[in-house]
Amino acid sequence: MSASTIIFYILSAIIVGGGLLAVTARKIFRAAVFLLFSLIGIAGLYFYMNYEFLGAVQIVVYVGGIIVLIIFSILLTAESGSDMKKPALSRILFSALATIFACALTLWLIKQHTFHVNESTIIEPSVRNIGRQMLSTTEHGYILPFEVVSILLLAAMIGCIVIAIKIKPKT
């Protein structure tokens, strides 16, 4: 086993272990922190594969953005420090079943697909290429307009929240 393989397994262990701990942790804050480890592991995997751009984006978006938001909202809830109640047995069962099903489906899909190495056209994953691809109008193009639309949706969502939010009457 080469050093590279060992690193791969360490990263995978972080991802899987972090994910497992995130769903089993009793404290909601700890769950968020384990989720953070899992996401950092994924970013590490990207770096390991030399997809630095993807790795950095993963960290910016998920770690710097989403996890911070989650933690921030946890801080605002009143009982972030106390242990959560144990979920009902039926819920544990159903979520276990759902997980096993999803896992099986993914494995089955991977098994079905034959990965063949494409040696003729190696696309260099540089930022320049990614940028070009985003703005291209050929096949697999139109990524930037797609992203812009999603930003629009987000803005609409925030707008809805702002409109719907209740301002406490001043006493």
């Binding site: 910016v60 770690v63 710097g64 540089s126």
Partner: peptide, 17 residues
């Protein structure tokens, strides 16, 4: 690293955690 600037800003955003 070929994305140096992005790398710096992404990692430094982790400190807040």
């Amino acid at each position: 690293i070929n994305i140096g600037v992005l790398y710096v800003s992404s990692i430094s955003s982790m400190a807040v955690i």
